[in-house]
Amino acid sequence: MNQPYYEQKDLDDFPNITEFAPELGEKFFDYYNTATSAGKLSEREKSLIALAVATVRHCPYCIDAFTNKCLSLGIDNDEMMEAVHVGAAMVAGDTLAHATQMRKIIKKKEM
């Protein structure tokens, strides 16, 4: 059997994640919808943040959903790519920042 874990059609199942815990699921969706809708930040800004997070988190469903949303909002391809670079830079910075622990240990242990 050659069935991938991730299937595009599973994105359609996202609204059903309320199954087995409907109250919590509904609370999540209230929160999700409020957090991703226009507030003090615009829908465009929030969509770019979501796209960056989606790529950092390697979520194929979110990448699909938010690439489409960014296109729908007329966001340029280079703007989307810049947002992805913010995510990439944060991951790189986060990795390198953790080298601090390594450097501290090295300095303590070496003669």
Binding site: N68, S72, L73, G74
Partner: peptide
């Protein structure tokens, strides 16, 4: 008149109008 340049739907009219 805006219509998407591809196989996706238009986004929020007010958000697009502001950008235009």
């Amino acid at each position: 008149m805006h219509n998407p340049a591809g196989a996706y739907l238009p986004g929020s009219q007010s958000a697009l109008e502001a950008e235009y």
